[in-house]
Design a protein around this nucleic acid. Structure first.
Lengths: 354, 354
DNA sequence: TTGAAAGCGATACCAA
DNA sequence: TTGGTATCGCTTTCAA
């Protein structure tokens, strides 16, 4: 029989409340009594209040659930994701809260729903989950607060994001200004129908279900249209997976078509880095023979000299956490738009040279 | 007022048990009644049983706590850690269990203890926590099962690990067989006293509190002694942080001493890769001018051609999870020793050339 | 197939 | 400062 608060109370000859206070509110009883209780507890093998029971009574789980549809590996292999989580965990830590990872990869609706419903958490952070995902319906019905990592006042209680569309428009405009006219785009998303690697018909980008990817592609299109270039001349390829290797493969495909594009826009830094790998394979020099841009500004981008859109990943995490754990009074503050900046480094150059 | 099981029961005119069954044991009531209950619940905005209450009643939290003393970033920036966690999450998923991250970095004893005590979990996975850490005392007193990621029948209920000592001995023996006599070792550990970057006096390695690092260094010493080399001629430097950058810095220090070592043993792949970065800075060729070995065999090691000790990271995670969630009946199976293999690639070569 | 009653283990309020 | 009591929301025998 495992010892409980009651056990200790009986042994010491005090009430449960007093034992409880000994643990949770030391100032509510004399140090001597407290010590006596703690000693007795130790002797009985009582390890302190049961966490679950305390959660129930207090109405606080002490954790926030992080929902994502990628596998655990993918979630953490992306340096951008890691930085975001770092920010999130910083905020969580400040509020004595843990992070419960809830991977929803390859789950059917039932399973996903169960995972969300059975999560002992005070709120959710929707990290990488499309709107249509069944988990979202369930999550919303649970009535716990949820924050998502894109600017989505339309669909979530709280949200923090950047203006993906404008940011990627800037990247594209930069290349167009340099005179590039043969552009290729590498997107990375995984839709409900199982998007495949390969060219995406130009008009289809509006149907992409991944909010961020859709916006980034639209931004590129905006710039292309601004520059009086025909959007259908732009090759858009989906790498499906957001990884350097997937970017490498997709870029290989794109670079071997003729005429070769003079610039490749990566929708994430990882696929842009993969593109640079593919260039190197072919003896092509980034920024001279072919220009490359990325998105995120992960640490490796700096090492490589990748021209890219910088977004504040850690801040995004911190803010997501704070929104959830210390909600602002003013409803107007519940959705945060963070600034981005296009960083010109060495992987972009004039088109003449290409 | 949030709706509860009772609310729904009252509205439908049945008892709480029946509503509970509607959710948790559909076979216990007629489909019609179940549907009626579910409909009423939806209408009332009742989202299904409260997870915490259910946990309390069932005596199952549905999560395992992952304890580590590094920061969240470091925990996930190491590809080895990511692979381990991938395995762990695979096992967890099989048992409908989540992963609660519990970072114990820069916490005082009180805080660490509180985090452990308040974690709503069914068991703990001690990922990167030294024996002396206060959290361990608390954890053990809680009475929930714990698994650690080293072969430690002496100190934990369950454990899974490799023979670090023998494995690193093999790496060192390989170099010695190639004729290397001026060796440097890069360790990466963070002791209670705050180990600093810099040379470690030779006899001190037995005092290192990080179990794995201690064993790896001992293994190297074993090989050195076997080869009739004086252990005190070997320079051991601690990078403190296990990262490529820290390895880079420490290696720079080591490579700029004269006479320069002809071989550098990295105690992890990350610091070994950092060493290769440092070699490149100096125009030195790995495997020709200076030999380098690593430990872990992370994916990047293969790309770079690093000679290293391969250990089954994912399997380690899977087994850790299974030990916790589906404990073997036979006590003899509670501690698992996994095989390792020394992989010779291109970063090691004969000493003559150095 | 359904319901009544007894907890799971703790906390919080209020009274002493 | 300490104790009594109600309650957090659900599951689970057991009986009807």
């Amino acid at each position: 029989m495992k010892p409980t608060l009651q056990t200790v109370a009986d042994v010491v000859g005090v009430s449960r409340s007093t034992v409880s206070n000994a643990y949770s509110r030391p100032d509510q009883l004399s140090p001597e009594l407290r010590q006596k209780i703690l000693d007795a507890a130790r002797e009985l093998g009582y390890a302190g209040p049961n966490a679950t029971a305390r959660s129930l009574r207090r109405g606080r789980a002490g954790a926030i659930g992080v929902l994502f549809t990628t596998t655990l590996s993918y979630a953490f292999i992306d340096p951008y994701a890691v930085r975001f989580l770092r920010g999130l965990s910083e905020a969580a830590e400040r509020h004595d809260t843990g992070l419960l990872l809830i991977p929803l990869s390859h789950d059917d609706d039932e399973t996903a729903a169960a995972k969300v419903r059975e999560a002992v958490v005070d709120g959710f952070c929707v990290y990488c989950v499309p709107d249509w995902h069944h988990s979202q319906t369930v999550m919303k019905s649970i009535g716990r607060p949820a924050v998502t990592t894109a600017f989505r006042p339309d669909a979530y209680d709280f949200s923090v994001g950047i203006d993906d569309r404008t940011a990627s428009r800037q990247a594209a405009a930069h290349l167009l200004r340099l005179g590039h006219r043969r552009l290729a785009v590498l997107a990375a998303y995984d839709d409900v129908d199982g998007a495949r690697l390969g060219p995406i018909p130009a008009p289809d980008i509006d149907k992409i279900e991944d909010f961020e990817m859709r916006q980034r592609l639209r931004g590129i299109r905006d710039a292309v249209v601004d520059a009086d270039l025909d959007w259908s001349t732009v090759t858009v390829v989906n790498t499906v997976t957001n990884s350097r290797a997937a970017g490498h493969a997709a870029a290989a495909h794109v670079l071997d078509t003729s005429p070769r594009p003079t610039a490749v826009l990566g929708c994430t830094d990882l696929v842009a880095l993969g593109t640079i790998d593919a260039l190197r394979d072919r003896g092509l020099r980034p920024g001279l023979d072919v220009s490359v841009t990325g998105f995120d500004d992960i640490p490796e981008a700096q090492t490589v000299g990748l021209s890219t859109v910088r977004q504040p990943a850690i801040d995004k995490g911190v803010i997501a956490g704070e929104l959830l754990l210390d909600p602002p009074d003013d409803p107007g503050d519940r959705h945060v738009l963070l600034p981005t900046e296009f960083i010109v480094r060495t992987t972009t150059g004039p088109a003449e040279r290409s």
